[in-house]
């Protein structure tokens, strides 16, 4: 009786071993059987990612910087941020990190696109039904809290090492904010405005595209901003499974205790993060100018 309270009545070692073996074996068989087919599904994404990376890396660097600066200026309308970004790009190039930076930018870009493309429709779905919300919400919690290494194992088993599993890992980690904030933004739309749309005979689609999405846009943009930031945070972990970019030199620096190398690449990631953040934030702010109107 005393033993019952002092040691937990756990399952037998043999049983546990059998359990693990069975699950692992089943999954291994599954990935052997369907791995190629599943990989083929991701081929278009892979092609696009490789193409985008090549464009960024093979175009003349002054041209790339010019395009970036134009995007930054028209996104943020801030001359200071544009000058700051120019200095950052020059320093990144001067310290020999141009190619890695372009790789990182390309994977962040593609991941953000995928997250937006999947996240906004899922968010819309969630906002429309409490049942969908109660099903998706716990999944998002798992995606955000499960240590990324844990879900990297099956992904790598299935797809091997390379860009696609890295992409998947980044998207899994980065997509929850945009889903949650799309849902929140739509739910927060003023009930009386929606009722007005109803009273004038708007159907579901008209309500979504004329009222709900436009009014939720600033919130959705906060979600996009969060998603980009989280994608950047995953760059180092993604590089462990073969994604090229600024993460790889950081890994090398950790392994070999190259402090300067780690610091430089780390600072390049920080610079990218700040640029992405400021541009998407001030663009999002400009979207809600109509709200600030009365305070001017």
């Amino acid at each position: 009786m005393v033993e019952f309270f002092s040691t937990f009545p756990e399952m037998s070692k043999a049983g546990l071993r059998l359990f693990k073996k069975t699950v692992d074996g089943a999954y291994r068989n599954f990935s052997r059987e369907y791995g190629d087919a599943i990989e083929a599904v991701f081929d278009p994404v892979l092609y696009f990612l490789v193409w985008f990376e090549k464009v960024l890396q093979n175009s003349p660097w002054p041209l790339v910087i010019l395009v970036f600066l134009l995007l930054i200026y028209f996104g943020s309308r801030s001359i200071y941020l544009t000058i700051g970004s120019f200095v950052a790009f020059i320093l990144i190039g001067y310290f020999g990190m141009w190619e890695d930076t372009m790789s990182t930018v390309s994977i962040i870009g593609v991941c953000t696109f995928i997250s937006i493309g999947l996240g906004i429709p899922i968010g819309i779905l969630m906002s429309g039904s409490d049942r969908a919300r109660s099903m998706v919400s716990p999944v998002l919690d798992i995606m955000q809290t499960m240590p990324s290494f844990v879900y990297l194992i099956p992904v790598v088993m299935l797809l091997g090492i390379g860009k696609v599993p890295g992409l998947l890992a980044v998207v899994i980690y980065a997509i929850p904010p945009i889903i949650r904030l799309t849902d929140l933004g739509i739910r927060e739309v003023d009930k009386e405005v929606l009722e007005a749309a109803d009273a004038f005979g708007a159907n579901k689609r008209q309500k979504l595209f004329r009222v709900q999405l436009p009014l939720a846009l600033p919130t959705i943009f906060a979600g996009i901003n969060q998603t980009i930031m989280m994608a950047l945070a995953m760059v180092v972990i993604a590089s462990m499974i073969g994604v090229k970019g600024l993460g790889q030199p950081v890994l090398k620096a950790i392994a070999n205790q190259y402090f300067t190398m780690g610091l430089l690449n780390g600072l390049a990631i920080v610079a990218l993060a700040i640029i992405f953040d400021r541009v998407s934030q001030s663009y999002g702010k400009r979207l809600q100018q109509h709200r600030a109107g009365s305070r001017e």
């Binding site: 009386e192 009273a199 004038f200 005979g201």
Partner: peptide, 21 residues
């Protein structure tokens, strides 16, 4: 019903219900 609301009734709300955007 949609058609009825579109053609037969107009509604004015206490807090206006205008589209802010």
């Amino acid at each position: 019903l949609l058609d009825f609301r579109r053609t037969r009734t107009g509604m004015v709300f206490q807090r206006f219900g205008l589209f802010p955007h």
